[in-house]
Amino acid sequence: MQLLQRSAQLLLGAALTYAGITHLTTSRTEFQAQVPTILASQADFVVIASGVVEIVLGLSLIFLFKYRTRIGWIVALFFIAIFPGNISQYLNGTDAFGLDTDQARATRLLFQPLLVIWALWSTGAWKSYRASKGN
């Protein structure tokens, strides 16, 4: 099980790092479509900042194994923090990343909780929390 978790952690780290790099380069405009309308005037800044955060979190998952449980919680909170952008994309019907129907955008919303679970499970964060509570 540990090998599977570690592999999942490394995969998540690589995915976050890659996504962060694309925030800054090839997919910058696409990511701007996910910025909530309330922040539309700052969309480019939001995309750049979140890209930098994703790179840092991704590299942390890959290289800072000693701090994996703390990083797992931070990554889970990051996925929760960016969820309003996904909701905004759905509510505004904004096309990006091939999500060009309401059904596709709604389906994507269902995957955000899975990312939170992935972060908590792969880093052992949830197990560590439960152990600290005596459960």
Rank of each mutant, 00 (worst) to 15 (best):
F83W: 11
Y90L: 12
K66C: 08
W73S: 09
L77S: 09
D102T: 10
T69R: 15
A81K: 09
V75P: 01
Q103I: 15
L61G: 00
L64N: 08
T101M: 06
F63T: 15
A81T: 11
G98K: 03
L99A: 11
L99G: 03
I87R: 02
F65P: 01
I62Q: 08
T69C: 11
D100R: 09
S60L: 11
A76H: 10
L59A: 13
S88C: 05
E54M: 15
F63V: 15
I82K: 04
L91M: 13
S88E: 07
I74T: 15
D95P: 00
G98F: 03
L99P: 01
G93E: 04
I55S: 02
R70W: 14
I80C: 09
L91N: 09
G93F: 03
T69S: 14
Q103C: 07
E54F: 05
Q89T: 05
G85M: 05
L57P: 09
F63D: 10
L99W: 07
L57Q: 10
L57D: 06
L64W: 13
I55H: 06
T69A: 13
Q103R: 14
V56T: 08
D102S: 12
S88T: 07
K66W: 11
T94H: 08
D95N: 12
R70Y: 14
D95F: 06
F65Q: 15
I80Y: 00
F65D: 13
A81D: 08
F79L: 11
F79H: 10
L61F: 01
Y67R: 14
L91K: 04
L59Q: 09
D100Q: 07
I71K: 06
F97E: 00
I71D: 02
L99I: 03
V56Y: 02
L64M: 14
Y67N: 13
N92M: 10
Q89H: 04
E54L: 14
F83P: 04
L61Q: 00
L61E: 01
V53A: 15
I55K: 03
A76N: 11
V53K: 06
W73E: 08
I87Y: 06
N92S: 12
N92P: 02
G58H: 03
Q89Y: 00
V53Y: 05
L57N: 05
L61C: 07
R70N: 14
I55V: 15
F63Q: 10
W73G: 09
G85N: 01
V75K: 00
